[in-house]
């Protein structure tokens, strides 16, 4: 095993982590500010990817496609918030889980009804395709590098937004004490819609960015959704910092575990069964990580009280 391969795998873990952060940020904001658990967040990821694929198909422009993904997911998010989600803030988690599970069914089958059952086409634009050489002799796909950079930039932007702006102050106030921000004269319902749409837009962007190198299809959001939940639970629900830490941890664990566990097993097993046993354990690894972290810190790395 060369160090180049290890470095490349670390970059891959970083890229997965950054993508997961885009998903997890919205989830954790919505939970922190509104106390809402949203299973339908993966559907917004799917909406973003489908919007991007459709717009890229019409216009041929990847940039327009990304803008469309942001717009479509934000619009869908705002609509869902206005029609359904705002009725759920006062409800218990059980009602929230069910209502948003119902939204998944509606979104998934609705998308299939609109776009058909086959995967859609969305590709990396030519100016971002192909590999680049990094210092140290690593050949790494330019597009993945771009994703890492976009993701880190958005993370930085999000921290600035929350630390420095008026909306950020309102969001933090909302996390600390919901009654207080009402007393401050903030239009709570507008703030809630805004936060929900922001989270949705990030998820939609993640869907479009990932859709270009994966397959744009119905149900694509669900595996990512579950990973994102693992992320925010590990990080501490409601904490943006926790979401970033959790995302990177999960991204690294999943990527590196998948690569190195089979090789570890190959030390004392024949290659075919080591490949299979290692892969089995690797697929459970992040859940084991999550259980272990919750054992030590029942409300996650950066969580207060749940």
């Amino acid at each position: 095993m060369t160090y180049i391969l290890v470095l490349e795998q670390i970059l891959n873990g970083l890229q997965l982590g950054v993508m997961l952060f885009l998903m997890a940020a919205g989830l954790t904001l919505v939970f922190g500010v509104m106390g809402l658990i949203n299973l339908a967040h993966g559907s917004l990821y799917m909406v973003g990817a489908f919007a991007a694929a459709a717009v890229a198909g019409w216009t041929g422009s990847f940039l327009l496609a990304l803008i469309a993904s942001l717009a479509a997911a934000a619009t869908a998010g705002a609509l869902v918030e206005l029609v359904v989600i705002r009725r759920l803030y006062q409800r218990d988690h059980l009602d929230q889980v069910l209502a948003t599970f119902a939204l998944i069914l509606i979104f998934s089958e609705g998308t299939r009804w609109l776009f058909g059952s086959f995967p859609l086409f969305l590709d990396v634009p030519s100016y971002l395709s192909g590999p680049v050489s990094l210092p140290g002799g690593i050949e790494y796909p330019l597009y993945r590098l771009t994703i890492i950079l976009i993701g880190l930039a958005i993370a930085a932007g999000l921290f600035l937004l929350i630390a420095r702006t008026r909306i950020g102050i309102q969001i933090r106030a909302g996390e600390a004490d919901r009654e207080m921000i009402a007393a401050l004269g903030v239009d709570i319902s507008k703030l809630y819609t805004l936060v929900f749409a922001l989270g949705a837009a990030l998820a939609g962007l993640a869907g479009a960015l990932v859709g270009a190198i994966q397959s744009v299809q119905v149900g694509m959001g669900e595996p990512v959704l579950i990973l994102a939940f693992v992320v925010i639970v590990i990080g501490g629900i409601g904490s943006i910092k926790g979401a970033l830490a959790g995302a990177l941890l999960v991204g690294m664990t999943d990527t590196l575990g998948g690569v190195f566990l089979p090789q570890l097993f190959a030390v004392f097993m024949d290659p075919a069964s080591a490949a299979s046993a290692g892969a089995s354990l690797a697929s459970m690894l992040i859940y084991i990580l999550m259980a272990a972290i919750l054992l030590v810190r029942p409300s996650g790395l950066y969580g207060g009280s749940a």
């Binding site: 891959n12 796909p141 993945r144 397959s215 694509m220 990527t255 998948g258 690569v259």
Partner: peptide
């Protein structure tokens, strides 16, 4: 859905 690690291998 992500094969970056496998492709590196």
């Amino acid at each position: 859905t992500d094969y970056a690690a496998e492709i590196a291998q």
